[in-house]
Nucleic acid binder design. Sequence first.
DNA 1: CGTAGCCTTGAAGGTGATCAATGTTTGTGG
DNA 2: CCACAAACATTGATCACCTTCAAGGCTACG
Lengths: 231, 231
Amino acid sequence: MGQFTADEYSLLKNSKLYQGIESDVLQKTIEGAFVRNLKHREYLYTAGGTAESFSIVLSGAIKLVRPTVRGENIIVHIATVGEVIGALLMGHDKIMNYLITAKSMGPSKVLCIPRSTFQTNWKMSAQLQGNLSSTMYSRMNNLQDDKTYFAAPLKTRLVMLLLRYLDQSEAEMPGVITLPLTRQELADSLGVAVESVIRIMSEWIHLGLIRSQSQTIEIIALDKLIKSVEL
Amino acid sequence: MGQFTADEYSLLKNSKLYQGIESDVLQKTIEGAFVRNLKHREYLYTAGGTAESFSIVLSGAIKLVRPTVRGENIIVHIATVGEVIGALLMGHDKIMNYLITAKSMGPSKVLCIPRSTFQTNWKMSAQLQGNLSSTMYSRMNNLQDDKTYFAAPLKTRLVMLLLRYLDQSEAEMPGVITLPLTRQELADSLGVAVESVIRIMSEWIHLGLIRSQSQTIEIIALDKLIKSVEL
DNA sequence: CGTAGCCTTGAAGGTGATCAATGTTTGTGG
DNA sequence: CCACAAACATTGATCACCTTCAAGGCTACG
């Protein structure tokens, strides 16, 4: 809990979400907000809880997870710096319950904004609403992509997944996925068994297409990788 | 092309989308709109085209389809009466291309609203934006559900799909899916082969759990159906 | 009355799941 | 800084589910 730094403020200011938003509007949209520091594997919220606030990721990454009947967990999205999570729940008249569990991957920092602030200050700004729906649009596309490639061979789907995560985290080092992804998390993103993911990635490592150490994945030969699955 | 009837107007007025919206606001949100009558299997728009308008379904049903590399088509959503389609594309500053193909199932009627009307008159209404994002929220949930149950046996997924379509079309006759769904369309909704769907449904018919004639499906023993897949 | 779309059934084969066993890395407390 | 636990990674063997291919029948509609 606590305030946030000048760095974090400017991060917000420059994020996609606040594109074209005036400073005084920004100020209003984070009224009553507080910072939360999350440890590795710590929960931001869990499915079933009442959704009294939503969040913006300030650093690190938060995985959004859906529990299955069989105790498995499917990752529906990984939110990285600058992304909003839980906002779609805030617009409703009556208070909702989270359907999704949000869990930190590595240490993260998030800004938690109370529902009331959304109701009073977010709904007013047409620009902000627009930016928000842009975010939703792209997440919806990802989900539709997932559905579209349901029947494709696992290799193909894994390549597509890596490309997506690469896009999300490439900023610092080109060709490197900086998200701390375990094989299990890749499997959970695709809804398959860990072993299947491991077998495919081991093959790619032997072929020299990718490199992987301590949960970061480096794509060495993107072209060959793509060609190998005839995307 | 043409104007719409008083019936259709009151349908709009009472739709979820226009919940709590004043008549004069409604009028503004359909400025420049026109009605299109679609025949069975006729396209409303196709993936790749420029998105100059979006639509509200007045009667019938429109399937939203994504083309696959292998010539398959995955159904990402079926929009029924009162639903909006293509709206998420309208909010962007620059004009976008449809990523999805919209095709009529049976004869349908839609109200096509030009992009410009969205830009000028939709963005202004906070209430409308809220209603819109409620719609998006529920579609997003469906897509996340699909992802979550990816690994479940096909029988389970088929039951869930039938339940969803039942919810969407049950209004008139309880227990009956009035959408004119072919086995192929069920298969396309799940991303599986037609034959697999047929085999499962034949079994259910023999067991007396469902009944099916000329593309309408009647659920006879919902409880047994659910129990049989241990949902 | 012929064609197009839809439905059905069977046989063969492959992809990925499951189970089991074992090795490796990371993190924490003494 | 070491010891130990917990999380993570790996490999092999077996098997079920669903796909694919093939062939044929039914129904609607111009």
